[in-house]
Design a protein around this nucleic acid. Structure first.
Lengths: 114, 114
DNA sequence: ATCGTACTACGATAAACGACGTACTACGGT
DNA sequence: ACCGTAGTACGTCGTTTATCGTAGTACGAT
């Protein structure tokens, strides 16, 4: 029940990874996790969508093999699967995160005024 | 009719690029172009889809800013926008192409019987 | 002018996607 | 036992996507 299914490294598909990353919300999550560097609860990342939509995006990321999710108490902790991804697609995650970080959120959706 | 519209570098969006790359057919085109290294006619890349579907995929790639398309005679020549992409998203294209090349087309399941 | 090749434009369709709300489960604290 | 917090499952809705076929345009060769 409280155990989440993750794809094994050999089942992670490039297209699924690219597809998962091709969404502003999910890119934001990945960017946040990369910056945080460790485990982050869903509730700590303030996405501009409803909770059920948030759950959907986390699921897509997990099923693509991009993030690891584990329950602790009532929280669900997320972290990047950096090692797996780096081994499978060297440089991919880094370049995407770097690009996303450089662009910030402005190209995606949310915009800070001022 | 003979001039095709391409996004300027500053209009190329990371998400659009990732989205365009997240398709087996288009990934195959990119892989082919990377390997060829220069201009390649649409007809030289044998995609397992109808011609009209092929046109659609080339268009997506062009509109995302991934490929350059130019007419010559009855042919339409395609080439990667490597410099633009490398400047915008350093390492991204290389890592995707390397990953796609390593996997080949089989793992990407660019085919189903029929 | 006619023909063949290469590619396009249009319209249709089925599937996938992103978004939501509501009702629900799981856990910790009181 | 009860409540609040954190997140899920399900059903729905509108949009986008991938696919096709058919009809058409552009160009080079004859």
């Amino acid at each position: 029940m409280r155990v989440l299914d993750h794809p094994r490294p050999e089942d992670i598909r490039l297209e699924a990874v690219l597809h998962a990353l091709a969404d502003p919300m999910r890119l934001e999550v990945v960017r946040f996790l990369a910056q945080a560097g460790g485990e982050v609860a869903c509730s700590e990342i303030d996405l501009a969508v409803s909770k059920s939509t948030g759950t959907h995006h986390y699921r897509v990321l997990r099923e693509a093999g991009i993030i690891n999710q584990v329950y602790r108490g009532t929280a669900k902790l997320n972290s990047l699967r950096r090692e797996d991804l780096d081994a499978l697609f060297p440089g991919l995650l880094d370049s995407v995160i770097a690009a996303a970080a450089r662009l910030g959120t402005r190209a995606s959706s949310a915009r800070h005024s001022g």
